[in-house]
């Protein structure tokens, strides 16, 4: 007999299989954040810039990757493979949860790659903090992935809608989280908007954690924000999947 857990496992491993079969396709898609490190980080003012900048870039690459992942579902809705899975006895929540959980894997690979590239340039790795940081990030990217799938389900055969919404939201979220430049020097209204962005707390937590500052208040706030995004994403995603025809 199957359970929700085995169903999630089936969907998760199916999603992961192309990555396992052809790891190069993923590695090439990971090069983008390296441009930010190579071409943007040198423009930052003080010496500790890498230590400050890298955690943000890890969150950014997670945002880019996970927010686009719905396009895979959109494509499978067009080719017919999503429909084929809807006729199987797989539980509807599993169809979403399994897909969203898969987002953790490219996120981890990407984080490892970015850190590995930066260590020779003076980035200090604090392992305990980094691991907790990745855990927070896992919850965050599962939520983002789930929201991206929700958007795909709602867009249904309207690619333009998916991409318009995704692209429109992407940069405000990124800039307001203070990934590229610190928010503290900005005007009050910008800081207020930044405080309303859950990603801000995740980015702050990652910066503290990757710097070895584990028992900080920012960690707790990051954890809460990531758990909120994760739960909200999964709940909306599962509901949308159950309702979609």
């Amino acid at each position: 007999m199957t359970s929700l857990v085995t169903d999630v496992g089936v969907v998760f491993s199916r999603e992961l299989r192309p990555v396992v079969r052809d790891p190069f396709s993923v590695i090439f898609s990971m090069i983008q954040p390296l441009f930010f490190l190579g071409l943007f980080a040198p423009l930052l003012p003080d010496d500790s810039s890498l230590q400050w900048f890298v955690p943000g870039v890890i969150v950014m690459s997670c945002l880019f990757g996970s927010s686009m992942t719905g396009s895979n579902l959109l494509f499978e809705m067009q080719t017919g493979s999503h429909e084929r899975m809807l006729v199987t006895p797989l539980r509807r929540p599993a169809l979403l949860i399994g897909r969203a959980l898969k987002e953790i894997v490219p996120m981890l690979l990407q984080a490892v790659l970015i850190v590995a590239v930066c260590i020779p340039f003076g980035f200090e790795l604090h392992l305990a903090g980094a691991l907790l940081g990745l855990l927070i990030l896992a919850a965050f990217c599962v939520g983002l992935g789930a929201l991206s799938y929700t958007l795909a389900l709602l867009s249904k055969n309207r690619d333009w809608l998916f991409w318009t919404v995704q692209q429109t939201l992407l940069f405000p979220l990124l800039l307001l989280a203070g990934v590229l430049l610190p928010i503290e020097n900005g005007p009050g209204w910008l800081q207020a908007l930044s405080r309303a962005n859950p990603m801000t707390y995740v980015v702050n937590a990652e910066r503290a954690l990757f710097d070895g500052d584990v028992l900080a208040r920012t960690t707790l706030w990051g954890l809460i924000a990531a758990a909120f995004v994760g739960a909200a994403g999964l709940i909306t995603g599962v509901r949308t999947m159950q309702r979609s025809e």
């Binding site: 299989r17 017919g80 493979s81 429909e83 084929r84």
Partner: peptide, 14 residues
């Protein structure tokens, strides 16, 4: 169904 059931980035056996 009318479309193709297999995911395009997948292998048939998988």
């Amino acid at each position: 169904g009318q479309g193709n059931g297999a995911g395009h980035s997948q292998r048939g056996r998988d």
